[in-house]
Design a protein around this nucleic acid. Structure first.
Lengths: 124, 124
DNA sequence: CATCTTAGTTACTTTTCGTTACTAAGTAGG
DNA sequence: CCTACTTAGTAACGAAAAGTAACTAAGATG
């Protein structure tokens, strides 16, 4: 069925590369981390400050994922005290078009009441 | 501390609207669902076919979320048999710039080995 | 020695996700 | 009428991911 639906690979059918990308970038907090790094290199606790609500455990996990995928580079400044700087790689900086497109969309369409904000637990 | 780090509001600091958007669009499978609907209106089982690996439960959940946020519109064709058609709204179609930007990035940078694919359970 | 910083990690709880089975309305065949 | 098939979901349950607080380790400061 549907032999004529795959006219353009870019918009019809399933694109594994797009899917991998949106599932990676779309992981919880990852979009905010990348946006924070768009402003320039930043240290662990600086990113944690710039992204309110995110725990250190998740920041550590996300940064390691982004590093594994070559989007973020980790640099050790062997102090003392030791400082770790994270920066976007070439591929990471090229996400700026995507980030700006989504930021523009969010300015136009996203309300401020935070209905899509981090889903915190109901009891606490 | 850090009084000079907030030079541009668009790229530094925390943007609640961008954050809400990236956490909503970045939910698991949501990016794939939106991309599938970019090709035109589609029924429940059509979307399920176009997005391999996604269960009906999650498709139902994501479509309801997108509907609540005004990104997708649900239309009932009272058959018989009854058919439900989903389509992007005005705001939904305006996500095409974001989707195309990320798709272009994925073409350049995302490998095909699926390391960022849906993380299925390990069971055998 | 106590306390502060840095950059995380461990242990534990809650939330989300994946799988399977099931509902409900209608169609087709026997 | 009964079974089988379609449509678009929903319910229940276990597994994976996320949230929270406490803790590590190396060095600086008082």
């Amino acid at each position: 069925m549907k032999a004529n639906t795959r006219q353009r690979a870019s918009l019809s059918g399933f694109c594994p590369r797009y899917h991998s990308a949106v599932e990676l970038i779309g992981r919880r907090w990852t979009g905010a981390i990348i946006r924070a790094l768009m402003a320039g290199r930043s240290r662990f606790n600086e990113i944690a400050t710039q992204v309110p609500g995110m725990s250190g455990r998740l920041l550590s996990e996300r940064l390691r994922e982004l590093e594994e995928h070559g989007i973020v580079a980790r640099a050790v400044d062997a102090g003392p005290p030791v400082k770790i700087e994270y920066a976007l790689t070439k591929s990471g900086t090229e996400l700026d078009a995507t980030v700006r497109a989504l930021a523009g969309w969010a300015e136009r369409w996203m309300p401020l009441d935070g209905r899509a904000s981090p889903r915190r637990r109901k009891r606490g």
